[in-house]
Each structure stands twice: as structure tokens, then as C-alpha cells.
Nucleic acid binder design. Structure first.
Lengths: 326, 326
DNA sequence: CCCCTCAGCTTAAACGTTTAACTTATTGCA
DNA sequence: TGCAATAAGTTAAACGTTTAAGCTGAGGGG
């Protein structure tokens, strides 16, 4: 069996309380002698505190939960890595949950995490379903009093910490770039309309277009779901309508889907049609396609989310963070 | 505050023990009446057991640890998803740890996980460093008596459960395919030599070549590290030597790296040089490159690892699993 | 010489469960 | 009627910590 604080106490000839105080650094009131002795014995026995017992007593677990739709999504994998690195630095661990875009699962996970006494949650909201359902998770977290940080600023509203890229700036940059290439008719493949990020990006994009004296055409905007297949389908739809020389997809996955369809139809990218993505997932850097993309600092988002969450856990308030583009 | 078993007991006019028995299903000795009453109150109060307390008492945490080098690696992300799905089904959770290919971190994580009272560990061993260091983690786990399952059969030896693809079969299949295309001079970019998987794959590949009356040339085999950059570097080296019409890379990442170098040098894939990968990561399905690859059922590997581990945790023994190729 | 202070501990309760051992009232049966 | 068996609980200890409160002996001040 693993040695406990009592085993150490027995060998040191002290009480368990003394050992606890020494090992947890609250040992001002313990003599140097005793302290050294206990420390030596702890080392000798290779003592590690039973975190479960500590958790029970202290009512904290030094564990965070990360809920995302699917860790196989490059975006979330990077966020996870950023978050976990940050956790490690703060002596925390990270529980990973895949919600598979199901709100039922999402709330189930929240219950489980709560049951495990999780200290906080980073929630990457699903990109499908209704806004009401999406809000349920947030309400549940609030009601349980679990500190949390949202990814992607999915839900707008007060008292929600979130970390995301600056969608307004991102949309503007994308427009800027495509305009500089001389495009005047640009098709857009957006995300679901109820996501604040999608809306912001779109309106910033449109605003910049209007500034340039162009009228963004409603007929050239289609909503999709951030997936490869979704992007392909959306692009096929756009091709049926025609009349554009560039496509701005709201993430790289959809951009790649669009590329595949364009190529199938014999259109060259970027000679015939320019395609612009958003995310800069690793994939798009390797792929042969000359895909222009706007980098989302995913690792940094995870890192920052962790930082904010750790702050919240320690009771400090935090204001939402926007990332600027490099 | 969250309701405890005692709150329920107070309202039901029973003792806490009775409530515990009812709620944990060991209630043969409790009357239907009392049972119903307790259940109703528990529901009304929305009671959830404090898992930390349960863990302390039962000395199990219903939590598994997954240690991989980097979750951003597509391979590990899929394994993680497979494992987590399996965990969920068994009422378990999954802690994610990124070792960043550092054995120090790996052992640190094992200590932390142990401290948290983890029930088991799935270990995706680092692909760099020496075999001695690699074994340390395994020994540590054994010494602590933590059930574990290895990914990729990195370390050979008795009493190690592992889940991996059938490298022998995989190597043979790759040779088969390239031979059928008429290649006689095939360059190979392998993984580190000390990984059993690499060795097996290579020897099976070579064996099949010899069967076909070909002499695998030592000068056309270079070791690399399973990374994109590593694959590119290895390919450049091979090109300096020359004399091959096909490249077999031991994973898709290196294969893509090789492709990029080939293209840079003005060689067309697959017209001038055939490139064969191994893994079938999502990336390679999207990429424009006509990359032939041997599918590794990554999700299934994670799933199976979870199944075995859960079995081990319940005390059942398990024999190593090999996956066959579809 | 007595009391106070203080260093340096120890005691014991608490965190929320589980479970072995015990209690009590009821029933069955000779 | 008496006694055992049983149903339906209760009690209390335990898991490994933390920590407020209590205790003890030595040294110092008056």
C-alpha cells in the first residue's frame, strides 16, 4: 500500500497533523528539526499525498474539464494542447469530453464533471442546434456555480467569460485581402447564423465590402456547418447560382471542401477562383491547395482560456479576451 | 450547497446508511416504501453523489489517463476519441496528458495520475529517445500496480498489454501494393529503429521484397521520426542518393513531407515517383496528393485499449490485440 | 515564586461516502 | 407460549487529509 501521512507520523514519532503541516508548507509553527525529519522520511518512503482525500477535504480537485464536440477536429486539438500545457504549469489536470455536437451529452458531461468536483470547465459549444439548447449548458454551469470559459464566443450575453479570435477584425481582414486581389463578386460560406462569431465575421466582411463601394449580394451567401462535406455542398450550391470569382469560407475545413468541388468542375484554384479560409489548421499548411487563410491562434486560445479559468477559480474576475491577428 | 446523503436521510427520516444503500442499488434489505421515498427525495433535491467521497472510500476513481506525446497529432486525437467514447460507455472519464516526447514529463504525469487515484493508463510511448528511458515509464506503472495498456507495441516484452495494428501484415501489404505497380527500387523512410513496430514493419516489407526476388537495398532505407519535417529531410537525403521509383514512408506525415520535397524538385507524384504512406489520417484523405496509404484503425485502437483497460481494472486478464487490415 | 506568553506540538472533528456489525420488531412454527 | 429466523433498519468506523482548538513545558517579567 502507498504510505499515508500516518505512516510518516509513526516513523517520525509525531502526530499526523504535524506531518500534514510540514508537507503542505504551513509549518511556521514546527521546529526545523521535526520538519527535516519528516521531510526525510517522506522522501525515503516516496510519499505522495492522496489527492482524492485532499480534494474531499478542500473541496477542489485541481482538475479542469474541456468539453468539445470532437477532439479529432484540429481546432479543438490545438486548443486542448494549449489548455493542457497551461494546466500543467498550474498543477492542474484536464479531463477531456467529446460532446459529439449533442446537447444532451454536453449537459450529461457537466453533471459528471460536477460530480467529480471539477474546478472549472472550458466549453467549446456545439455548432449545430438551436440557441435555446445551447444556452442550457451555460445556465447549468451558472446554476451549479462552476467557473467556466466559453470558446468562440458562441453565446452573447453578460457574465460569460469567453476566449476567441476577434471576428470583427478577421472578417475585415478577409475582405481586405480579397478586395486587394481585385475581386468584386465574392461568395461566402458562413457558419450557422445563431453563432455570434459567424454573424460578427459576416457583418464585418460586408461592412468592408460596402466601404469599398460594393454591394454584398445576399444570393452569394450560404450557411453551412463548418465541416468538409458542408463546405463542398455549399460550394456546389453557389456554383449553381454562379457569378463570383472568389469564395470566402468561414473555416478551413469548408474551404477545402469547396476546393475539392471547384476542382471537380474543372475550375483551377486560385487561377479561376480564389478561395479563402479561416483557421490555419495544420492541414491547410500542408495541402497542395494555395489556400489563403486567416490564422486563428488556437493554441493560444486554449492557453488563455486556462489562464482565465485558473483566475476565476481563485476568485478573481476576468474580462473577455479577444485575440488580435498576427 | 449540494445536497448530501445526510440531507436526504434527514428528510426521509432514515439514517444515511439507508440512503446510501438505496442509491447505490444494494437495497435488497430496504422496504419498497422507504426506497421509493428516498428515491423521490433524491430526485426532488437533484441529488448527485460526491464522487470524490466515493473515490476515497472505494479507492477507485472511474477515471483513466491517456498519455500521448501531442494530442494535435491526428493519430492520437483519433485514439483519444475512441478511448473516450469507450470510457463514457463504461461510466468512466479520461484525463488527457501531453508528454511532448519527454520521458521526464511522462513519469511526472504517471506520478500525478497515481496521486489522483487513476484506475488505469493508456500510454502512447514517445518515439524519440532511448529504449532504457522508454522502459522507465512501464516499470513505474508496474511498480505502482497501475493497470495500463500500451499503444503501438513500442516495448516488446512479457506482461505488457498493448493494442496496435498488425505491423507485420502492414509491411507486407505495402510491399505487395508497390510491387503490383511494378516498382523494383523502393526507398523506405522508417521510424526510429528501437520501436518494435518500425522494425516489424520493415522486416515484413523486406521479406516480401525478397520473396519477389528483389534485394532491398540498405542504401535506400533512412530512419526518421514520424514528423512532416523529418519526412521531408529524409526524402531529400534519398534524392541525393537516387535510384528509386517509389517511396514507402512509415506514416502519412512523413509521406506528405516527402511529397512536398519531391514536388519542389519538379518530380510529379505519382507519375514520376509513387509515394506510399501508413495511417490514413484525415489529412491524407483530403489532400490533393494521390497518396496511397494503409489504414490504421486509430479510433478502434483507442476503443479497444479502453475495453482492455476496463477489463484489467476489473481484474480480468487480457491478451494483446492486433488489428487486421480492412 | 507565580503567572503569562509562546513555541511546538497533539487532539479531534470534518469532508461525504460505504459497509460490516449490531439492533429491534415482527412473523412463523413447534 | 416460547424461540428462532427474518425483515428493516441503525450505528459507527473507515478512507486520507486539513485545521481550528487545545495542551504542555520552558522562559521571562514582575
Amino acid at each position: 500500500m502507498r504510505p499515508t501521512i500516518r505512516d510518516i507520523a509513526a516513523r517520525a514519532g509525531t502526530s499526523a497533523a504535524t506531518v500534514s503541516m510540514v508537507l503542505s508548507g504551513k509549518s511556521e509553527r514546527i521546529s526545523q528539526q521535526t520538519r527535516d525529519r519528516i521531510l526525510a522520511i517522506a522522501r525515503e518512503l516516496n510519499y505522495r499525498p492522496n489527492q482524492t482525500a485532499v480534494n474531499l477535504k478542500m473541496n477542489r480537485s485541481r482538475t479542469l474539464g474541456l468539453i468539445v464536440s470532437d477532439i479529432r477536429n484540429d481546432y479543438y486539438a490545438s486548443v486542448a494542447r494549449g489548455l493542457e500545457d497551461r494546466c500543467r504549469k498550474s498543477g492542474m489536470s484536464m479531463l477531456l469530453c467529446n460532446s459529439a455536437d449533442s446537447y444532451t451529452r454536453e449537459t450529461e458531461y457537466i453533471e459528471v464533471l460536477d460530480s467529480k468536483g471539477i474546478d472549472g470547465v472550458v466549453l467549446g459549444m456545439s455548432s449545430t442546434g438551436s440557441i435555446e439548447k445551447a444556452k442550457r449548458s451555460v445556465e447549468l454551469l451558472q446554476q451549479k456555480g462552476i467557473p467556466f470559459v466559453l470558446l468562440d464566443r458562441t453565446i452573447t450575453g453578460p457574465s460569460c467569460n469567453s476566449v476567441s479570435t476577434d471576428d470583427t477584425e478577421g472578417g475585415r481582414l478577409a475582405a481586405e485581402h480579397l478586395l486587394s486581389l481585385g475581386h468584386t463578386h465574392i461568395a461566402v460560406i458562413t457558419g450557422p447564423d445563431y453563432l455570434a462569431g459567424s454573424r460578427l465575421r459576416l457583418s464585418a466582411f460586408s461592412a468592408r465590402m460596402r466601404e469599398a463601394g460594393l454591394r454584398p449580394e445576399a444570393g452569394l451567401t450560404v450557411h453551412s456547418d463548418y465541416s468538409y462535406a458542408g463546405g463542398a455542398k455549399a460550394c456546389a450550391e453557389l456554383l449553381a447560382r454562379g457569378g463570383f470569382s472568389a469564395v470566402f469560407a468561414f473555416n478551413d475545413m469548408m474551404a477545402l471542401g469547396a476546393c475539392s468541388v471547384l476542382r471537380e468542375r474543372g475550375l483551377r484554384v486560385p487561377q479561376d477562383v480564389s478561395v479563402m479560409g479561416f483557421d490555419d489548421i495544420f492541414l491547410s499548411r500542408i495541402v497542395d491547395v494555395p489556400l489563403t487563410t486567416i490564422r486563428q491562434p488556437m493554441y493560444e486560445i486554449g492557453d488563455k482560456a486556462g489562464e482565465i479559468l485558473c483566475g476565476l477559480i481563485e476568485g478573481r474576475a476576468a474580462s473577455p479576451i479577444l485575440f488580435e491577428y498576427p
